[in-house]
Computed example of a mutant assay.
Amino acid sequence: MGRAEAAIFTNMCMIENEKGQILVQDRQNKNWPGITFPGGHIEKGESFHDAVVREVEEETGLHIKHPVLCGTKQFQTNQDERYVVLFYKTNSFSGELTSSDEGEVFWIEKDALTDYQLANDFLEMYKVFVDEQISEFYYDQSNEEANVVLF
């Protein structure tokens, strides 16, 4: 039995400004709408680092520097592929904030996050970004419904 499996790699980045605010995106996607962090798919042959820098710039207009990997999210798709989201964070960036077709981007206070319509399970993902004791968000699909497990 081989150990290889089909996988899809994506990223998401929490950007914090000098005021301690975080950049969020009001995602306009029918499959996963709501407030989340910018990010997207990693292209074949692209480094994880370069992909998060590119995705953030495409979706926000900001050029991030020194993104630090702070956790992961993973689950199996209906096509039996492993879907992996690499979580990054940074407070180093330049450029002018600009929204994209993906959704409006704007700065908010961290404690105001729950005042917005969040993407599904986003609060649990947020814990991975901010709690150094948690490094993985996992959908346990061992029974009929998927349950979120944080490691």
Rank of each mutant, 00 (worst) to 15 (best):
residue 94 S to I: 07
residue 82 R to Y: 04
residue 45 G to H: 12
residue 66 H to W: 09
residue 58 E to S: 00
residue 122 F to V: 03
residue 90 T to L: 09
residue 94 S to V: 13
residue 61 G to E: 10
residue 49 H to I: 09
residue 126 Y to R: 11
residue 69 L to F: 11
residue 73 K to W: 12
residue 112 A to E: 14
residue 36 T to H: 00
residue 116 Y to T: 02
residue 137 F to Q: 09
residue 127 K to A: 11
residue 56 V to P: 10
residue 62 L to H: 03
residue 130 V to P: 05
residue 35 I to T: 00
residue 59 E to G: 02
residue 41 H to C: 13
residue 127 K to M: 08
residue 109 E to N: 11
residue 76 Q to C: 11
residue 97 L to N: 13
residue 73 K to C: 12
residue 121 D to H: 08
residue 94 S to L: 07
residue 72 T to S: 13
residue 124 E to R: 13
residue 74 Q to V: 10
residue 52 V to A: 02
residue 112 A to P: 05
residue 70 C to R: 10
residue 82 R to C: 13
residue 131 D to W: 10
residue 98 T to M: 04
residue 82 R to L: 07
residue 139 Y to S: 08
residue 81 E to K: 14
residue 88 Y to R: 09
residue 101 D to Y: 05
residue 131 D to T: 06
residue 115 D to T: 00
residue 75 F to S: 15
residue 131 D to E: 15
residue 95 G to T: 02
residue 100 S to A: 01
residue 121 D to N: 10
residue 81 E to S: 15
residue 49 H to L: 13
residue 93 F to C: 00
residue 137 F to C: 12
residue 39 G to I: 04
residue 91 N to E: 13
residue 101 D to S: 08
residue 104 E to Q: 05
residue 100 S to T: 00
residue 126 Y to P: 01
residue 73 K to G: 12
residue 67 P to G: 05
residue 41 H to K: 11
residue 89 K to Y: 07
residue 59 E to N: 00
residue 62 L to S: 02
residue 138 Y to Q: 03
residue 110 K to F: 01
residue 75 F to Y: 14
residue 66 H to F: 06
residue 113 L to I: 04
residue 78 N to D: 13
residue 131 D to F: 11
residue 48 F to G: 07
residue 110 K to D: 08
residue 90 T to D: 13
residue 94 S to A: 09
residue 57 E to P: 07
residue 73 K to H: 14
residue 86 L to E: 14
residue 83 Y to A: 08
residue 124 E to H: 10
residue 123 L to I: 03
residue 37 F to R: 15
residue 48 F to L: 09
residue 65 K to R: 12
residue 76 Q to D: 07
residue 76 Q to H: 14
residue 113 L to R: 01
residue 124 E to I: 08
residue 59 E to V: 00
